[in-house]
């Protein structure tokens, strides 16, 4: 199903961060959000999750208006969130973190098996507390937790931040698998070569305003937009 942001404005308390932003993430497609630090990428994902009150605009999944629901209903519609900095339940075990993911949409042992098969390292560490995992393992767990929803939409906020190459390619593979399964994916990513490899389309954000949305081909041929919005 297509996720649509329809002219949303949002912020923290009285401080407005997003201004009339419109985006569309289609099934089986990776939409990358690009913008400088503080442009409002994380804020956009939080607004989708209903974690921030909208000042105006709507967030729609198919015909369902997510922005009209209480925030805890949003994941039940199949939005999986992998937040910046992972935000695991640090004092819970790996198994319990996964259990929380499963509870969100009432998924059971079958989904759990599927997810653990994707991340065998987690299976070996089920009774370990999340905070004792290595950075890469924590990112795996954050990803696994979101996949436990069997999401139709996946939001990834800088999933490769601070990871070594082998871990990065694992995350990339996961994104590919999800795309091929028809999931609509919004990916916030700072590494340009990762963006060029993974994205189908790229949306630029500048100071909370939506700018050009282009096919990734355009960026491969011409780096001018990158220069303009992220300075490289």
């Amino acid at each position: 199903m297509t996720l649509r942001l329809d002219g949303i404005s949002a912020g923290y308390g009285p401080v407005q961060v997003l201004f009339d932003l419109s985006l569309e993430a289609r099934p089986g497609e990776v939409l990358c959000l690009l913008g400088r630090n503080g442009a409002g990428k994380t804020t956009t994902l939080k607004a989708i999750m209903g974690l921030l009150p909208l000042m105006s605009g709507r967030v729609l999944l198919g015909a369902a208006e997510l922005s009209a629901m209480p925030a805890h209903e949003v994941p039940k519609h199949g939005i999986g969130y992998i937040p910046q900095g992972r935000r695991l339940f640090t004092e819970l075990t790996v198994a319990e973190n996964i259990e929380v993911g499963l509870l969100a949409r009432g998924r059971g042992a079958e989904t759990r098996e599927k997810v653990l098969t994707m991340f065998p390292r987690l299976r070996e560490r089920l009774s370990q507390r999340a905070e004792t995992l290595s950075g890469g393992e924590q990112q795996m767990l954050a990803t696994a937790r979101a996949l436990c929803l069997e999401p139709e939409v996946l939001l990834l906020d800088e999933p490769t931040e601070g990871l070594q190459p082998s871990m990065i390619s694992l995350i990339r593979d996961t994104v590919d698998v999800m795309r091929d399964a028809g999931v609509a994916i919004i990916l916030v990513e700072q590494r340009i070569e990762a963006v060029l490899n993974l994205a189908d389309r790229v949306a630029f954000i500048e100071n909370g305003h939506g700018r050009e949305v282009v096919d990734v081909e355009v960026l491969r041929r011409d780096k001018a937009l990158l220069q303009k919005y992220v300075g490289i």
Binding site: L51, A71, H72, Y81, R87, A104
Partner: peptide
């Protein structure tokens, strides 16, 4: 542990 993430996971 994390009220916001709990919400993001349907709690």
């Amino acid at each position: 542990l994390d009220r916001e993430m709990a919400t993001a996971f349907g709690i």
